[in-house]
């Protein structure tokens, strides 16, 4: 079934097509949500509500851009909403510098960092840093877009990105000699 056919079937409310669409994108989108949200159950909640919005807003999809990109944007917005609800977005650097927060993901230097380890590293970041790093580095948002999405200034966005990178590099240093 091609993507337009799948979308048309979903628009007709066919349960099989809806299930197919879910199966096709749920795994990818759960990783997206997990990048923003620390607790797995929060990520699943964001995924659930995100898919509800996807099916609800499906008639508005004009099939001009990437369907996966359209779904991903909905998921990112949902994850950010969930993040605002679950975790304070602006955590100070001092709060982050607690001993328990400095624990790094156990991994050996000679092993390739796996996705779960990278996720674990991301989740050690304060929520605000994590959101900015995700949006800039992985989603490709500009600082202006990030500032609008998170309700912060561009300068704050740049500053938090820089700090997030620094923290990640510090944690990665003992694990990988070069990356």
């Amino acid at each position: 079934m091609t993507e337009p056919d799948l979308i048309a079937a979903c628009l007709r409310g066919e349960p099989r097509a809806q299930r197919h669409l879910y199966n096709q994108f749920a795994g990818l989108m759960l990783t997206v949500c997990r990048r923003y949200l620390k607790r797995p159950e929060d990520a699943e909640e964001a995924l659930l509500l995100g898919f509800a919005k996807v099916f609800q807003a499906l008639p508005t999809f004009r099939q001009e851009g990437s369907f996966e990109g359209w779904i991903r944007r909905i998921m990112v917005n949902q994850a950010l909403m969930e993040l605002r609800r679950r975790e304070p977005l602006h955590l100070s650097f001092e709060d982050f510098a607690q001993p328990e927060n400095l624990a790094s993901t156990p991994a050996t230097a000679d092993t390739q960092l796996q996705a779960d380890e990278l996720l674990a590293l991301l989740q050690t970041l304060p929520p605000g840093y994590r959101a900015v790093f995700n949006l800039y580095a992985l989603e490709g948002y500009s600082h202006l877009e990030i500032a609008e999405a998170l309700g912060i200034s561009e300068g704050t966005s740049k500053s938090q990105l820089s700090k997030a990178r620094a923290m990640l590099q510090r944690r990665l240093a003992p694990q990988t000699t070069s990356f």
Binding site: A26, G27, T31, L47, L118, L122, F133, L138
Partner: peptide
């Protein structure tokens, strides 16, 4: 390089959602 590491490591990674979620 850091951004690339995360982009390549997580960009196409899929987590398996629980069955109850559907």
């Amino acid at each position: 390089r850091l951004d690339n590491l995360f982009r390549t490591g997580l960009g196409s990674h899929a987590s398996q959602p629980r069955r109850e979620l559907w």
